[in-house]
């Protein structure tokens, strides 16, 4: 039986254990079906993965039931959590061998001309001036960890992996990156490069 969307939280908290168990089973099936649709065609995802992701997601949803604010359908909210669980795990597997030392070492080179070479900028004068200012700001205004985190993001390293390598929390890592972007943007603006210049440069 498909639950009425408004009933899900109450059923998942039901004191009648049979009712609660049935709702948990049904939610698990809903999450697994959604994950099957979302991850269809990926060679790195098997049926066993889908079962594991659904089970892990179910636990995460039950832990966070209090956070559901009824701003969307319950199953939409739960599917978003399930996708976060699944993609986080898939990204982690791909990047598990990267070390903090390697990331920091590469991050240290981020401001070098060789890393952001002029020949990839298409010979555009404004773009070249902007990138030269950016290189200088990266070198003078950012910490080594901020440089490493930005480089990790650019290379599509999973955010959770960056968090783990930096030995911090997700919110602290996000703030570190946000502060870095704000500092770089401010430096560009101080050099007379406007928001519109930045938007239109690439």
């Amino acid at each position: 039986m498909t639950q009425n969307e408004t009933n899900w939280p109450a059923l998942l908290r039901a004191t009648d254990s049979a009712v609660q168990a049935a709702a948990v089973r049904e939610l698990r099936d809903v999450l697994q079906a959604g994950l099957r649709v979302a991850l269809n065609g990926r060679s790195d995802v098997s049926e066993a993965h889908l079962e594991d992701f659904a089970q892990e997601s179910l636990l995460r949803v039950l832990e966070r039931l209090e956070q559901f604010q009824r701003r969307s359908r319950f199953t939409t909210w739960a599917q978003a959590i399930a996708l976060n669980v699944a993609f986080t795990e898939l990204r982690r597997k791909r990047w598990q061998d990267v070390s903090l030392d390697a990331l920091l070492a590469d991050g240290e080179r981020l401001s070098e001309p060789a890393m952001m070479a002029d020949d990839v900028l298409g010979g555009d004068e404004e773009r070249t001036r902007l990138v030269a200012t950016l290189r200088h700001a990266i070198e003078t205004d950012l910490t080594p960890k901020q440089r490493a985190a930005i480089l990790g993001e650019l290379r599509e390293m999973p955010f959770d992996q960056i968090v783990e390598l930096l030995g911090t929390s997700r919110s602290a890592a996000y703030k570190m990156l946000h502060d870095a972007r704000r500092a770089l943007k401010q430096r560009l603006q101080e050099a007379g490069i406007t928001g519109a210049d930045i938007q239109n440069a690439f």
């Binding site: 060789a114 890393m115 952001m116 070479a117 990839v120 990138v131 950016l134 690439f202």
Partner: peptide, 13 residues
Amino acid sequence: QRLTGDQVGTIVK
């Protein structure tokens, strides 16, 4: 090691 033009563009964007 080297960033592509797209990656530099991503930072700026």
